[in-house]
Nucleic acid binder design. Sequence first.
RNA 1: GGCGGCGUAGCCAAGGGGUUAAGGCAGAGGUCUGCAAAACCUUUAUUCCCCGGUUCGAAUCCGGGCGCCGCCUCCA
Length: 471
Amino acid sequence: MTQRKEPFEPLVPGQVRMYACGVTVYDLCHLGHARQALIFDVIRRYLEYKGYHVTYVRNFTDVDDKIINRAKELGRRWDEVAKGYIEEYYRDMDRLGIRRATIEPKATEHIPEMIGIIKALLEKGYAYQINGDVYYEVQRFPEYGKLSGRKAEQMLAGARIEIDPRKKNPLDFALWKRSKEGEPAWESPWGPGRPGWHIECSAMSMKYLGESFDIHGGGADLIFPHHENEIAQSESCTGKPFARYWIHNGFVSINQEKMSKSLGNFFTIQEVLDRYRPEAVKLFLLSAHYRGPLDFSDDRLEEAKKALDRFVTAFEAIEALNALPPRSGGDALYDHMVSKGREAEEQFQAAMDDDFNTAAALGVLFGFLREVNLVRSEVERNITAGGRSALHIARDRINRLGGVLGLFEQPSLRPGEADLKGRLVELLLDLRAQARSKKDWATADAIRERLNSLGIEVEDTPQGSRWHWRR
RNA sequence: GGCGGCGUAGCCAAGGGGUUAAGGCAGAGGUCUGCAAAACCUUUAUUCCCCGGUUCGAAUCCGGGCGCCGCCUCCA
């Protein structure tokens, strides 16, 4: 509200109540939606890491013009279209490893609450009805524009909105829309209709979080008018301050242009995930501060993938050390790693405390990884019990902190690695076939024995060798 | 026209009045290796778009330019 960073103090000590505007389910989600969802997921995870009890509400807008239009295009029922895209949404978020919110309400399931607020606004004189439509009267709320830093007069000057002559003021917005034939409709004191877009978030956030709560947010494009309108209708209804802190994320762009449906320059989450691991996509999305723009390109994703592999290879190498028996000693290494780890965790917290600076936090993790690799190369030369524990504890810390960013939670197998095993066996069998053709039985038998000891049985047949995992 | 944001190495990106200007990618050198690849280590900005000002001191604050982007209509 002050347009700057503010120290965070929740309304109720130890508890955080946050609301993020979710998606309108009329199409597949693109990378921009992924960024928004991830950022709020990370904020939630970090607050939990800090020991807060977090109630996180994220809604679905499941009735709206765009859904109705989409249904017409597809020749399906509007509610089926919404339901289908909610399923797609969950599929995308699950693949990305973005946690479900505490409560995920749908607009259509909260019509009575919305009607309640509209009624109250009419009674208090903040709204007026025309012919089955109900509008909020912006001029009755002097603070209108306080979030976006605009004044009502300014907005009129350059307005490019079409003016509805029935409205008292062009800025007035619909709380309730009368339904046309064939459109979804709910009974109301003003006749059959459906809610305006802004009212749903007021109704659902206040229902689950109370009339005043801590954090509200969404994409930067929602600042005006959506969030401005939410504030107006909520505060004039309750007479209390609405959300205390506002968090708005920047856009994902392509060639410096906002990724959007209208420009057609978007990539769906599914398209991106077909080509890149979820963890790499997340690393990319967190590599810039959430408020700034983030330009998408294959080069950036490739970089993120390689950067992520630094962690993956280190984890794998640390794991591999377990197979070998350690010597005693290495206590100094252990102490060193613990203190470096503590230092890193403090720096990580400092970065996240500063307006959730994930890019800086990631930098801390990479810096710590270097320390870990230094120790690792020493332990690889001389495996000691202390050295190995040092690496384990460091790996656990990286995992834990990475987990706050939603990273390192998924199996570290690189894509194709599972079937890579099969291809490696085939490769060995090819070599073995060459050896057999030269009657190099020692080599051939050695390969068979070695594979056998790994649980792979090899059978020779007239058609060539076959292999299978021992059951 | 109004409101807001951004401009830091070859690229991406933190920082934000005075410690060595994080980190990633790419490049260079090295360790390892029969050679290679991979991996790891080291290294890479006397300088932060330009011009003025404030200050003992500015990339960081202020004023003015230039360039890019977003919002003001649905948009994460």
